[in-house]
């Protein structure tokens, strides 16, 4: 067996590794991915993420999506799938939309393949009103993604919105705007979370002192009291 990313022959170290591990990635490649349990709220909806979107992750995702390397599908949820199955028991996964032309070219829906190991029912109810990729648009256009529900789809009560990564969050926002939060229980799961989104995460109380400190260092203004916020004009 070879590592799916670096072609090195797989060697396991340690008792667990030699006996049980069947990770398709080698230990070095896996180490570069930054595993972190990320709990935050997106537009008031609980969001859970498992990896920080760093260079190694983005490289792998590009190889999977753009180079159409289907073999990488089980890599993303390796070791997490079982956990997710229990966490979201009873939910139905709603996939974020992908352009129809791209799916036809790939021959598979990349999110569906990626999330299959969770063992939850999967639905693909959304479609984009304009079929252009995110990269072709300007930053201000990206914000205004408009989605619509496909015809004849009945949404279940418990919904899990799932995506591979969250960058600006505009696709998720558009999807949320289509759903009635009073009628459905909604959760969001993204495999990775971008650093810009992570920065928006509300800090714990003990982080506030650090934030104050760094802010005051930058502005050279005296801060009165340890936990006071700065008043801007």
């Amino acid at each position: 067996m070879r590592c799916l990313l670096c072609d090195a022959i797989l060697e396991r170290s340690g008792l667990y590794g030699t006996l049980f591990s069947d990770d398709p990635l080698c230990e070095n490649c896996r180490k570069e991915w930054q595993r972190q349990d990320i709990h935050m709220r997106f537009e008031g909806v609980p969001l859970y993420g498992t990896y920080v979107y760093n260079d190694a992750f983005s490289k792998c995702l590009i190889q999977y999506k753009e180079c159409m390397d289907e073999a990488l599908a089980p890599v993303f949820l390796y070791g997490i799938a079982g956990q997710l199955h229990h966490r979201y028991h009873g939910y139905t996964v709603l996939l974020m939309p992908s352009s129809a032309a791209k799916i036809k070219e790939r021959g598979f829906h990349h999110l569906e393949k990626m999330l299959e190991p969770m063992g939850l029912p999967i639905l693909d109810p959304f479609e984009k009103t304009d079929d252009r990729s995110q990269k072709e648009k300007h930053a201000d256009e990206r914000e205004s993604i408009v989605l619509r529900l496909k015809e004849g789809i009945v949404l279940p009560k418990k919904i899990l919105l799932a995506d591979d990564t969250i960058t600006s969050g505009s696709t998720l926002r558009a999807a949320l705007s289509l759903l009635d939060q009073r009628r459905h229980t909604i959760r969001i799961y993204t495999v990775s979370v971008n650093r810009s989104q992570l920065a928006r995460k509300l800090p714990f109380p003990w982080d506030i002192a650090i934030i104050n400190k760094s802010a005051s260092a930058g502005k050279k203004e005296a801060v009165h009291g340890k936990f006071s916020f700065q008043v801007t004009e």
Partner: peptide, 21 residues
Amino acid sequence: PSYFYKGSKGWYCRKCIVFQR
């Protein structure tokens, strides 16, 4: 043969995957 993988569209080569499938 260890570099060949069967996807939904058929067999493809993983050795030169960085240059698209």
